[in-house]
């Protein structure tokens, strides 16, 4: 049964890691906008400005794009 002397700290350590991750995400405000996170992922504009399709390099980004 000596094996539990290793297993218990590992199990608890993993649990604590999860708790720490949760507290970190809470502090970073990841639960402030739950709906936004779900729809932001659909937007593929995470590419750098100059590599975005349909957008010239002269565009400074201030102009709204035509979405119609």
């Amino acid at each position: 049964m000596n094996v539990i002397l290793y297993l218990l700290p590992i199990a608890l350590g993993l649990g604590l890691l999860g708790l720490a991750a949760f507290l970190w995400s809470l502090k970073k405000g990841q639960y402030d906008d739950l709906e936004g996170a779900a729809v932001r992922i659909l937007d593929d504009d995470d590419l750098p400005e100059e590599r975005r399709p349909g957008r010239g390099s002269g565009d400074n980004g201030a102009k709204p794009r035509d979405r119609s």
Binding site: G36, V39, G61, A62, R65
Partner: peptide
């Protein structure tokens, strides 16, 4: 109204 508005708004004010 939709997801696309997020980008439009954030980009839109970006040059202020």
């Amino acid at each position: 109204t939709c997801a696309a508005c997020i980008r439009e708004i954030e980009d839109g004010v970006a040059g202020a």
